[in-house]
Write a protein that binds this DNA or RNA. Sequence first.
DNA 1: TCAAGTTTAGTGTCGCAAGG
DNA 2: CCTTGCGACACTAAACTTGA
Length: 230
Amino acid sequence: MPVIPADQSCEIIQLAAVCGGHFLNLFTVPRCRMQHGAAKVTGFRVQSHRLYHHRLPVLTNSLKEVLVSFIAFLNMLDRPVLVGHNIHRFDCPVLARALDEFHLKAEFQLAVSGCLDTLPLARDVLKGHGIPSFRQENLVQTLVGVSYKAHDALEDVRSLQSLYSALSPTPEQVVRHSFTLDSLEKPASKPLPAAKGKGPSKASGQRPLWEHLGQVGKVVEISKVGTIVT
DNA sequence: TCAAGTTTAGTGTCGCAAGG
DNA sequence: CCTTGCGACACTAAACTTGA
């Protein structure tokens, strides 16, 4: 049986973001039945249109409310950079689809400077360090020295915050592995090319990404948990 | 240039434990 | 005894990186 691509099949059920001491952690009930595997991995379960996490009821909002709250959170932060592990392949396509559905994409893009994927970033920063695995769990354990609960969005973002600090990427490395939601829609979507000699370029009249670099408070780690559509 | 390996997510199957 | 819930494991897809 073919596996349905994640960006076409996943729905957001938890969205968490951390910036400095501020955090956002919201849940929404998926509009479809959760598959056995998805429930097993995430610990979430839907019964009678209510969401449970490890058998405990969870306070939920509508998907639109979650997205609007997320954008409001970003607006408090003066156009931050969104950081996540492998978000270019998984999280951002799901997020972009959800934003598109509620016509919130333009508003979202005004609220952020760009997105940064820590998977290629870590490969770049840790090149030649003999890292056996670039999974987020492994990187956090290796660089930060702690274990955490994978597949819990809030735990994910908190560990990612520590990981990002531990990586301490240069502005050039950050720009090299950054992208926008618009770039995801293009067939040959790739992270922005590395600047050659003249530094990062400005993107479509917005403030350049590198203006935000090195400011820990302007970096938002995000994570979402998906559920398969049947 | 291309094969191998990496990440994320999912599915299917098996075995074990608990409860009716 | 049967059903249900859950964990472990092996596998798949797509995009990307790495190294020969």
